[in-house]
Each structure stands twice: as C-alpha cells, then as structure tokens.
Design a protein around this nucleic acid. Structure first.
Length: 107
DNA sequence: TGAATAATGGCCT
DNA sequence: AGGCCATTATTCA
C-alpha cells in the first residue's frame, strides 16, 4: 500500500540542494503514517526546533513537492494551510479530500 | 470571533 | 544585516 516513500526518502538523502534542516523536515514528514496528520509546531518540535515558521518555510521551499506528503501537515487548529507552494486555491480542498480518504482507508 | 502583536528559528537576498 | 515565512499563542475589543 505504500507509495514510493522509500524512493523519495533516498532522493531527499541524496539531495544536495537542501539544508540539513529541510532534510529533517522531509524525513519526519515521510515518517508520518497514512491517515495521520501533524501540525507545523509538532513537526518542528520533533526535529528539535521551536519555530513552526521555519518548518513552513522549508515546506514552501520544498523541492520534492508533491512527492513529499506535505498535505499531512496542518495548522494547529487542524486547517490545511498550503500544498505544493500554494496557500490558496481549489487544490487545498482536494488535498483535504485526500486526507479524508487516507483517514478513511486507515479505519 | 477576529485583528493585532509577540515570540521564535531558519533561510534568502 | 534585514526581512520573509504554508505558525502559534496571547491579548484586546
């Protein structure tokens, strides 16, 4: 059922166009199971950072989008903030449906 | 409930 | 060195 998460992980590990911080963000994001969501602050805390903004910026600069499941990252109040460099648009609603689908698949 | 502000950490120019 | 950012919490009305 898994996607090419491993392939993406290897790509992230081999990427030299990103910083260690971004690498941690993407790896932790790939570490989030299907159907699970995580907030920017939570993700930041996991990698040892207290700035959710840094994580958000890393995701916006995400050169692996949408290969990296950035749609599993939500705001503190459970709202999707952006995807593939877009903060607004119908795409967000689709990603919301995708998350719902993943969550449903988990049950 | 919503606008404004502070805190906080990394990255870009 | 200054400013930006896909944030969050707090404060004020």
């Amino acid at each position: 059922m898994s996607t090419d998460v491993e392939a993406v992980r290897q790509r992230v590990l081999a990427s030299k166009e990103i910083t260690e911080f971004q690498r941690k963000v993407y790896l932790e994001l790939l570490n989030v199971p299907c159907g699970e969501t995580i907030t920017y602050g939570e993700l930041a805390r996991r990698i040892g950072c207290r700035s959710a903004q840094a994580v958000g910026q890393a995701l916006k600069r995400n050169p692996f989008a949408p290969d990296v499941p950035c749609h599993r990252v939500i705001a503190a109040d459970g709202t999707l903030c952006g995807f593939a460099g877009q903060r607004d648009g119908e795409m967000i609603e689709k990603k919301r449906a995708l998350l719902d689908s993943e969550r449903e698949m988990k049950q």
